[in-house]
């Protein structure tokens, strides 16, 4: 099976402070994404989790080609996209194939656009649809997302949170993309609405043959929706594997603390230490130390002198930790 999307050692470094002239000091870089490799298979939902500042938002902007890469490759449908400048990707043929559902639908719909305008925008620009063809595609997308057609003339502020989320999804699926990035699509919603939106996304995935990258900090939701999950810490992947396995038997100490911190209604709480303190600085991090070292509850001296690489633990699981042991 060929992957729909494959990232190869993807890196993104942002310069910080005054760089170059007139300052003589060497420029510093925030290592937002470092050496990230992953693959998304057709029809798969890949979860992307991690704390704020772990680089998942930057990674999303790289994959959606809103941002130029510092290094590495992005293979999409066997085509290398990283070499296309983000500036030019707006008119690229694959623009229609990689779309995104934004975190806050209220904020990601232009407040001066009606729902119909918002859904129409990519159809007009990317597919060149006009008139009746445009109209019918807008209505098709709206109906697929359970958005009543009489709401199409409304502005975002006249819609409820759930309705706005549906507009955001309708806009994203209108161009019939292959890959959809879902950036915390239910974070702004109440639980009662969240469920319907999650189920809608699940239905759409099957009906339209989509692949998802699902970004969320709500591990419970990730677990329910995702086939596989990637856990990031300070720009690097620390653990990846089948979603259920990773949440039931996390192998990386960071994943263990992350899973243990999730509030749950009942059931035994996994025993793992709390993560105290803040992550270390992402500016010019020591290339020879584990990024989690210092905050890690189990770290040893070796972690400060040797960056752990992702190791295969079988069953599709990879963990970047010197101390990790196989499940069971």
């Amino acid at each position: 099976m060929t992957a729909l999307l494959e990232l190869e050692n993807l890196r993104k470094h942002f310069p910080v402070g005054r760089t170059g002239w007139p300052s003589k000091a060497a420029p510093s870089f925030v290592h937002a994404v470092d050496d990230v490799s992953l693959a998304v298979q057709p029809g798969e939902t890949l979860g992307l989790v991690g704390e704020s500042g772990c680089g998942k938002s930057t990674l999303v902007r790289l994959i959606t080609r809103l941002l130029d890469v510092t290094g590495g490759k992005i293979w999409f449908n066997r085509r290398e996209l990283a070499e296309v400048p983000a500036r030019l990707f707006a008119r690229d043929d694959d623009r229609a194939h990689i779309q995104m559902v934004f975190q806050d639908a209220g904020e990601s719909i232009n407040p001066r656009f009606t729902a119909a305008d918002a859904i129409a925008d990519p159809l007009r620009r990317l597919l060149g649809l006009r008139g009746a063809a445009l109209r019918s595609r807008i209505e098709e997308a709206a109906l697929q997302c359970g958005l009543p057609l009489e709401l199409l003339g409304r502005f975002p502020h006249q819609l409820s949170g759930g309705q706005r989320a549906r507009v955001g999804i309708a806009r994203a699926i209108g161009t019939r993309p292959r890959l959809l990035i879902l950036d915390e699509p239910t974070a702004a919603l109440d639980v009662s609405v969240q469920v319907t939106v999650l189920k809608l996304l699940q239905t759409l995935k099957v009906d339209l043959g989509l692949s998802y990258i699902f970004v969320s900090h709500d591990l419970n939701v990730v677990r329910l929706l995702c086939d596989r999950v990637v856990v990031m810490y300070l720009g690097r992947i620390v653990e990846t594997g089948p979603a259920r396995a990773v949440f039931e038997t996390p192998l990386h100490p960071y994943t263990r603390s992350l899973v243990a911190a999730v509030p749950r209604l009942d059931g035994p709480r996994p025993d793992a230490p709390r993560l105290v303190g803040d992550p270390r600085s992402p500016i010019d991090p020591d290339p020879n130390a584990c990024r989690f070292y210092g905050r890690c509850p189990v770290g040893v001296a070796r972690c400060g002198t040797e960056m752990p690489a992702l190791r295969d633990f079988g069953g599709g699981r990879d963990v970047a930790c010197h101390l990790a042991e196989g499940p069971g």
Partner: peptide
């Protein structure tokens, strides 16, 4: 967000 959304459009 709508600026990014427009870029994607």
């Amino acid at each position: 967000g709508f600026v990014d959304a427009a870029r994607l459009s």
